[in-house]
Amino acid sequence: MINEINEQEYAALDPKAAKMIEFYSKTCGPCKMLSFVLKDIARQKPEFPIYIVDFDENRELKERLGVKGFPTMLFYKEGREVSRLEGLKQKPAIITAIEALA
């Protein structure tokens, strides 16, 4: 399940739920590639929530979360960041990070 969210919607998310937040930019080739990777992962793990955030339109949020570039994937559980992946990654690395939240 992939949903695009903004800062307000981020604030409304269940803080305790395991999830991934991905920051992307429309001007970024690796981000475009990652969108296909995430689609595949969403098919494999339909129950796992993936949220995508436009880096350029949500600057306050990315500053608050310490996101320096794109794409960046933040993995959350119980309200805290467990890990993050910076740059384009392949499916196994992302799935490993997701499974580590279990």
Binding site: K26, T27, C28, G29, P30, K32, M33, L88
Partner: peptide, 26 residues
Amino acid sequence: KFEKGTLAMLCLENGDESHHYFLNTS
């Protein structure tokens, strides 16, 4: 030559198999 942000991938294909290489245009 690719404009920044282009999605690009090199593909090697024959009847039996294919191989894919991501091109970073950032």
